[in-house]
Computed example of a mutant assay.
Amino acid sequence: MDRILDLHDRAFAAVEAHAGALVPLLARGVFAATLLVYFWRSAATKLGDGVFGFLSPSTGAYAQIFPKAFEAVGYDASQLTVFHWAVAVAGTWAEFLLPLLIVLGLFTRLSALGMIGFIAVQSLTDLYGHGGIAHAETLGAWFDAAPDGVILDQRAFWVFTLSVLMIRGAGALSLDAALHRQLRGAPEAAR
């Protein structure tokens, strides 16, 4: 039994030694493969018409972000406040920029933290703004046999992946690492 444990420990010691560089890269890869296009498509539905659509949210943006407030004004965006406009614009930009920064590995820890906050707000809006809390299949449940609940199940995996990036950073193959090497090497080159 000691030999088996020794073999196990040696084999996985090698894996663990390389995991520091591999885990963040894998987390960014999984994020890119599963969530990048999801968030970009969602953000695209929030863009207004024309060249300056990124400053003029679509009616879909208000319907998604402020469903009850938008309904209360008869779906007339002109009756919403500057606050509603600012949140819709900032949310749209965040939905484009934060995933891009994560995939590139630039400002990864802050971007991952921002995405965790974004997902929290998104989930609360889905549950309370869109009424998902009334539907058990939307909320889901942990420790049940169904892993497909939109909020508790799926988004827990999203947040876990982002938490890995927030804690570990982007890894060696990232713009964060290149920037760090560049800035760290700059004082030495000046000597």
Rank of each mutant, 00 (worst) to 15 (best):
L25E: 02
L26Y: 00
A27N: 14
R28W: 13
G29E: 13
V30F: 07
V30Y: 05
A32F: 00
A32M: 02
A33R: 04
T34C: 10
L35M: 12
Y38D: 06
W40L: 12
R41W: 15
S42H: 15
A43M: 04
A44W: 14
A44N: 12
A44M: 10
L47N: 08
D49G: 10
D49R: 05
G50A: 09
F52H: 12
G53K: 08
L55W: 09
S56N: 14
S56H: 13
G60D: 14
G60Q: 11
F66D: 11
F66T: 12
G74Q: 11
S78V: 07
S78C: 02
L80M: 12
V82W: 01
F83M: 12
H84Q: 02
W85A: 11
A86D: 04
A88L: 03
A88M: 02
W93G: 14
W93N: 08
A94Q: 14
E95N: 13
L98T: 14
P99H: 09
L101H: 07
I102Y: 00
V103M: 06
G105D: 08
L106Y: 13
S111M: 01
S111V: 01
G117D: 04
A120M: 04
V121C: 00
V121R: 00
Q122E: 08
L124P: 00
T125E: 07
G129C: 09
G132T: 09
I133A: 08
A134M: 03
H135E: 13
A136P: 14
E137K: 09
T138C: 00
T138E: 03
G140K: 09
G140F: 07
A141D: 15
A141I: 12
D144V: 12
A145Q: 04
P147E: 08
D148C: 02
I151M: 03
L152P: 02
D153M: 04
D153L: 00
Q154A: 02
A156T: 15
V159W: 02
T161D: 07
V164S: 05
V164H: 09
L165Y: 07
